[in-house]
Design a protein around this nucleic acid. Structure first.
Length: 480
RNA sequence: GCUCCCUUCGUCUAUCGGUUAGGACGCGAGAUUUUCAAUCUUGAAAGACGGGUUCGACUCCCGUAGGGAGCGCCA
């Protein structure tokens, strides 16, 4: 691959550049989302690059997990993902060019010396930057048999200014930036060089990433300047913290997006939640994706870190569940069944004609579920086998008088010809009126007999979904 | 330690010098109701602290405190 101009016709080119060290965690997902939204908003291009220059840490499974995570989140990218490692030759080429221009030099210092120098600096309370003695030394003095690393000859004085769309203008004194290594002694490029070369060659115009890269932006700016390349626009977004304010770690909810998938969250809900962590558009909370694309902009991103809050995510997910089509919900449930408790059994039932029943139950189910898992739990009654096992509360409801009531009700329901919720309700209400009982007194026993629980969708909907035969049979089971 | 950044209800946030500081989640109360949800009404709940600037500061400046990020031949 050689240099190629931005093939976007003046439109922005952004990229998401994860390193394949694990799954796509929630912070990375948000970074990807911001990039994606920015590309969509501007009609630009969203590229993917896998930062796999560290061969020891490279991991095929991680690459797959990241791509799968992005797909699940429905963040589609343009072109094929670029492997940074595959471009090592070009990176070396650029390092050579920098050497030729006098913007880089060979450094023969050994890791042990560097470490010692850092320790000394720390002890004296100075910034722990390494000042290579080879910066201005003649290479003729080079020790024999030592392969040098290549360092950037960074400016010693002055300051490097980063104009950032989120952080504002950030100024870093050059004396605080050491001569970073751009080529390891084994000839392989390091991250900062690779990023600059790739972003340049890929025509990246806007670099949107986590603030943890802010100081890298200063170093990378120096490389751009050394090469006389145009520095891209930067937007360093704040990090996401765990609920306790501590850094998001594996123990603090930095789960891969697939974990959220398995918890029954919808991608649209997660996107909506994630974008609101650090970005706002007035008082809007539930924002459909097309609207999000229209409204999204770098200006709306705040600078302070946010904490991850499951309660709000869950609430948002409930909104999306209620507005998602029934068939799609059934499909999404089917998708995650292999990963959840009792999922395989349900999958078998779905395959054996249960899908239609679940679909029929969905309208009343989705009104009261906040996650797909709750949906599955709510659907328990649909697939329960006779005779139903009543849970503790349901058994308590099912006392002698309840059984007696159900016995009488069965006779009334048997003669209902139109087995629909409305007709069934009319029949039960008529019965209630005659006996002077409150509807609640009758509905609860019905619910217990029909579902085995005290909480369920409206009983008349339940009867309709179950069908005449099954519903009456369940009632007979409990009648005395 | 050094550099940079951050600080509005418990949480996510609005406010771009003048508001009774708004919304959302969560929490409390009520309404509705066949349970649970949903929905509606409603309550409690915030400008870290100290100095300036200004007729007037949440908003601008300085300092303090607290928090975060970075300081690799990792990315």
């Amino acid at each position: 691959m050689t240099e190629k101009p931005a093939q976007s016709g003046g439109k922005p080119v952004v990229r998401f550049a994860p390193s394949p060290t694990g799954y796509l965690h929630i912070g990375g997902a948000r970074t990807a989302l911001f990039n994606w939204l920015y590309a969509k908003n501007t009609g630009g291009t969203f590229l993917l690059r896998i930062e796999d220059t560290d061969r020891e840490r490279n991991n095929e499974a991680a690459v797959t997990a990241i791509l799968e995570g992005l797909k699940w989140l429905e963040l589609d990218w343009d072109d094929e993902p670029v492997s940074q490692f595959s471009r090592a030759g070009r990176h070396r080429e650029v390092a050579e060019a920098m050497l030729a221009r006098g913007h880089a030099y060979h450094c023969y210092s050994q890791p042990t010396e560097i470490e010692a120098a850092r320790e000394a600096a720390k002890a004296e309370g100075r910034a722990q930057i390494f000042d290579s003695p080879w910066r201005d030394r003649d290479t003729k003095d080079a020790p024999a048999g030592v392969r040098p690393a290549v360092r950037l000859k960074a400016p010693r004085s002055g300051e490097t200014v980063i104009k950032d769309h989120v952080q504002g203008t950030v100024t870093v004194p050059n004396k605080d930036l050491d001569d970073l290594i751009i080529l390891r002694s084994d000839g392989n490029p390091t991250y900062n060089l690779a990023v600059v070369v790739d972003d340049h060659d890929m025509g990246v115009t806007h670099v949107i990433r986590g603030v943890d890269h802010l100081t890298n932006a200063a170093r990378q700016t120096q490389i751009y300047q050394a090469m006389d390349w145009r520095v891209p626009e930067f937007a360093h977004v704040p990090l996401i913290h765990g609920a306790d304010g501590a850094k998001l770690s594996k123990r603090h909810g930095a789960l891969g997006v697939e974990a959220y998938r398995a918890m029954g969250y919808l991608p649209a809900a997660l996107r909506n939640y994630l974008v609101r962590l650090g970005w706002a558009h007035g008082n809007d909370e539930v924002i459909a994706t097309p609207q999000l694309i229209e409204w999204f902009g770098l200006d709306g991103i705040g600078k302070s870190p946010a904490r991850f809050d499951y309660a709000k995510l869950t609430d948002l997910n409930g909104h999306y569940i209620r507005t998602t089509r029934d068939a799609e919900l059934v499909d999404r449930i089917a998708d995650i069944l292999p990963e959840i408790d009792g999922g395989p059994e349900l999958a078998a039932k779905l395959a054996a004609g249960g899908r239609e029943k679940l679909l029929a139950a969905m309208p009343s189910l989705k009104e009261r579920a906040k996650t797909l898992l709750e949906l599955v739990d709510g659907a328990h009654y649909v697939f329960a086998c006779r005779p139903l096992a009543l849970d503790e509360k349901a058994s308590a409801v099912m006392d002698a008088s309840a059984k007696d009531t159900i016995g009488k009700l069965v006779r009334r329901l048997e003669i209902v010809t139109d087995w629909q919720a409305a007709a069934l309700e009319a029949a039960v209400r008529a019965f209630a009126e005659e006996t002077g009982a409150k509807l609640g007194k009758i509905a609860q026993p019905l619910r217990a007999a029909l579902t085995g629980r005290t909480v369920s969708p409206p009983v008349f909907d339940v009867m309709a979904v179950l069908g005449r035969e099954e519903a009456l049979a369940r009632l007979e089971d409990q009648a005395s």
